[in-house]
Design a binder for these strands. Structure first.
Ligand SMILES: Nc1ccn([C@H]2C[C@H](O)[C@@H](COP(=O)(O)OP(=O)(O)OP(=O)(O)O)O2)c(=O)n1
Length: 614
DNA sequence: AATGAAACT
DNA sequence: GGAGTTTCATT
């Protein structure tokens, strides 16, 4: 089947040819190929989204029954509302007071917060936005647990974390495996096939969609009819092999979601379709705790009446601009705009918008787990900082968060390291200043090391400034990279380092803090005083004494210890860098193909920057 | 390197 | 609509 015959282009009418690739011919070659990527006619993509995520996390943490109406509170407002609570008409951004009015036995949990002096977030009484900082750590951790269940359940599925509670899964491979397993005759090209491997597959079987989720209807009539193949047959619909693929994808997703539910207690909603965009869009067709399947032939009916501002990337200014420019709201209305016309008005963006509207999305599901990411902790200050000295406090809180997060991240990828640290400070609305610096390559990224670096940046930021009125502080790691190949040496580095500095067996050593190790290792079993007054150390490798260049009188012991720890780490990094330079060169990343069409999610561009500096 | 915008949860 | 993230484009 090829595209429908061309019909004349008319104004104000959407053409059936707008959706012209819904039933591509599928051949043996297709099913036997491994790497067709976005051009695979049997591609199956899923988007899985956790229901009322923050609320679910708190519900699980508190071991509450899933039916209790629970809500996550942030100051006086709500940021997540469980489905049971939604039954009472409660919505996000209701005030907690109103919510309680609507549902007197509502369970309200305030988000965990960091507060002054505490290294870890907690659930405190009397939280206050002026003194506390919201912590999303629980949700991040639960999120990564869910991702791990995905990975473990679908060893062959490519997984891309899309947000704290969403992930795309490329099911194409596992689906094809099952397809061939279940229909082994597809694996061999018949002798009498007219075009050999390029012959079309034989007719597909009927599908029993029971238990597989909700089918998004093909037509208004289909909407009211029973969801089975028989009725489809009667209405003239014929199943495709891609439908079969989708149904297998749905099976897999049902399994995965069941695992998440069993292992972790979270319900999820998923969308299953031929590409990311459609998977995402149809995931919200029915929630909670459900999954929806969008067959290719259902795309036009589903997409045309869709308000396009619901589409990812069209939810913001671009969507507004489109709506305003053409004075329309739904996808169908935009189909009348020619590509040329759109390119004229929207340049760069035009092509992929044009394609999106037609259900085309060429983006791959790419595993980007932790790679290529930055890590930012920030705090808006309702009560602005006016004294530069007060910056320290918040920087320390942010540093604590970053330390925790990096530690968590390294549990999965131990060789993760941030190349730079950057501090932003915003005054009022607009006018933000930032300052960045290289971050030492070290395993022991402690609160102190981060805070010290942050404070240094803060000072640079604050100097040559008379009046300050900081309303927002942000501390971030950027250029976080994982050493992948040829990294035995880095593992080695970490190991030797630990071996060289084993925790000394001192009864009440706070051995949790690697900082202690370093200091102590230079002066075994020293009296506390002595340790605390050190301002230099002797390097075991080069036997020189390395001293702090600048010891400030106003430093307290903690600050001094931090400074020393950082100095030591910098010095060790220096040695490590030398070692590296002498060793065979580590990374050469995977191929980066030049193919890429303009897309909103550009292909990885500069992976080659890896280790490029000497 | 610094700043800012945009999009999203 | 608040708070927090992340990425990208521009300067
Ligand atoms: N404007 C927003 C949107 C979301 N979130 C947070 C709270 C949500 O729990 C989490 C996930 O966002 P979703 O948009 O996926 O919404 P929910 O998971 O809460 O509900 P749903 O079941 O509709 O996905 O992100 C937020 O803080 N602010």
């Amino acid at each position: 089947m090829n595209s429908p015959s061309k019909s004349a282009k008319g104004k104000g009418k959407t053409m059936s040819q707008d959706y012209d690739d819904l039933r591509p011919i599928i051949t043996y070659r297709h099913i036997l190929s491994q790497n067709l990527g976005v051009r695979d006619p049997l591609r199956v993509i899923a988007l899985c989204d956790s229901d009322a995520f923050y609320a679910a996390c708190e519900r699980v943490r508190l071991a509450l029954d899933p039916t209790v109406p629970i809500v996550v509170q942030q100051w006086e407002s709500l940021i997540a509302v469980s489905y049971p609570a939604r039954k009472y008409g409660i919505s996000r951004m209701d005030k907690i007071k109103d919510a309680k009015k609507k549902c007197p036995n509502l369970v309200a949990v305030h988000v965990a917060t960091y507060k002054e002096g505490e290294k870890e977030p907690g659930y405190w009484d009397n939280v206050d936005t002026r003194t506390h900082k919201v912590s999303l750590d629980l949700y991040r951790r639960e999120s990564s647990k869910i991702i791990n269940v995905f990975k473990q359940t679908l060893p062959n599925g490519e997984i891309e974390k899309a947000s704290i509670d969403e992930a795309f899964i490329d099911l194409t491979r596992p689906v094809r495996e099952k397809l061939l397993e279940r229909y082994p005759h597809l694996a061999t090209v018949p002798e009498d096939a007219p075009d050999g491997a390029d012959s079309p597959l034989p007719p597909p079987p009927l599908i029993n969609w029971d238990q597989l989720g909700v089918l998004i209807p093909l037509t208004p009539q289909d909407e009211v009819s029973a969801q089975d193949e028989l009725s489809n047959v009667e209405s003239g619909y014929s199943t495709t092999w891609h439908d079969v693929a989708l149904s297998i994808g749905a099976e897999l997703m049902a399994q995965v979601r069941e695992e998440v539910s069993k292992q972790l207690g979270y319900t999820t909603s998923a969308g299953i379709a031929r590409n990311k965009f459609l998977a995402k869009l149809c995931a919200s067709y029915k929630k909670p705790n459900s999954q929806s399947i969008l067959r290719n032939d259902a795309i036009p009916y589903y997409l045309r009446p869709m308000p396009f501002q619901k589409i990812r990337f069209l939810g913001g200014k671009l969507g507004d601009a489109l709506a305003k420019e053409y004075d329309v709201l739904i996808v169908g209305d935009l189909l009348t705009i020619s590509l040329d016309e759109m390119q004229h008005k929207f340049g760069e963006n035009a092509l992929w918008v044009y394609e999106l509207l037609r259900g085309i999305d060429r983006n791959e599901v790419k595993e980007k787990s932790t790679l290529f990411k930055s890590m930012l902790a920030s705090k808006n200050l309702p009560k602005p900082i006016t004294d530069p000295a007060d910056g320290q406090h918040w920087i320390r809180v942010l540093a604590a968060e970053l330390a925790l997060r990096l530690k968590d991240a390294r549990e999965e990828v131990p060789t993760l390291w941030p190349k730079t640290i950057v501090l932003h400070a915003r005054k009022g609305y607009e006018t933000s200043r930032s300052k960045q610096a290289a971050f030492p390559f070290t395993k022991n990224v402690t609160v102190d090391v981060i805070a010290l670096a942050g404070n240094k940046l803060w000072k640079e930021l604050m100097k040559d400034v008379t009046s300050i009125n900081i309303t927002s502080v942000q501390l971030a790691f950027t250029g976080i990279e994982a050493a992948e190949t040829g990294q035995q040496m880095i593992h080695g580095f970490f190991k030797t380092r630990d071996a060289q500095h084993p925790p000394l067996k001192r009864p009440r050593s706070n051995s949790d803090d690697p900082l202690d190790k370093g200091v102590e290792s230079e002066t075994p079993n020293p009296p506390e005083r002595q340790v605390l007054s050190l301002t230099s150390f002797v390097c075991e490798r080069c036997h020189s004494r390395i001293a702090l260049g600048d010891v400030r009188a106003e430093w307290n012991e903690e600050q001094r210890a931090s400074a020393l720890a950082m100095l030591r780490q910098e010095h060790e990094d220096f040695h490590f860098a030398q070692d590296l330079a002498g060793a065979s060169h580590p990374i050469k990343p995977r191929s980066s193909k030049p193919v890429s069409t303009r897309s909103r999610e550009p292909e990885p561009k500069g992976i080659t920057k890896f280790f490029s500096k000497k």
